[in-house]
Amino acid sequence: MTPPNSTLPWERLTERSPLAARIAAHTAQAIIERRHREGELITESELADANGASRTPAREAMVQLETWGLVRLAPKKGAIVTAVTPEERRDLLAVRTLFEANVRPDAATADALAEALAANLERQESALTRSDLLDFAGADHGFHSLLIQSSGNSVTMEILDRLGPRLARLTYQVIAEHPERIAVFLSEHRVLARHLADADREHYAELVRAHISAGHADAVTVAP
């Protein structure tokens, strides 16, 4: 019952996913987990060989990775893993804050949303127990997506969708450097979920801003 757009590319793969989509998703995952480091060159043939594929889907996967902002295509060479700059972090988090502060939950779907949020919080809890950073980053992304989707506006979700891998990358970096923060995020998420339907939207927006800026505080200060 997870809405289709609330997941990251590797979480929404099915047996029917095209090979190029699979290669792109798995490579995105590897970049976020820093198995490919910033500045590393990934060649087309390397990507093709690693996935037992021909060069055509590998090439398509690289274009996809570029639209996610995870690599920069280098003609005749392949793709170079991008670095997360402080500006990018600031701008991405400003966008996430903007979207979430503007949420107006749709009363008609309140029950389904509460259920989905509860399931997601359980997943976060389980990731915390297992110290599974990637799974927590995925659950965190799912959680924020659920908040944004609670307005019932599929267009806002769609345009934010492409930033998913990059947002997950930011979260992963923070919790990889500060694993103790996972528990803080989880408890803040519980507070956000509880106040999502409150009538006082300005207060809710404040909670969102505080959560997002504090979480990434020493990475960069988020503009109000």
């Binding site: 903007l98 979207f99 503007n102 307005s151 506006n153 599929s154 267009v155 806002t156 345009i159």
Partner: peptide
């Protein structure tokens, strides 16, 4: 429905 969602998304982005 999609049209009004589109307008709402545009409103959010452009006012910001």
């Amino acid at each position: 429905t999609q049209m009004s969602q589109l307008s709402a998304a545009r409103l959010m982005l452009e006012t910001e």
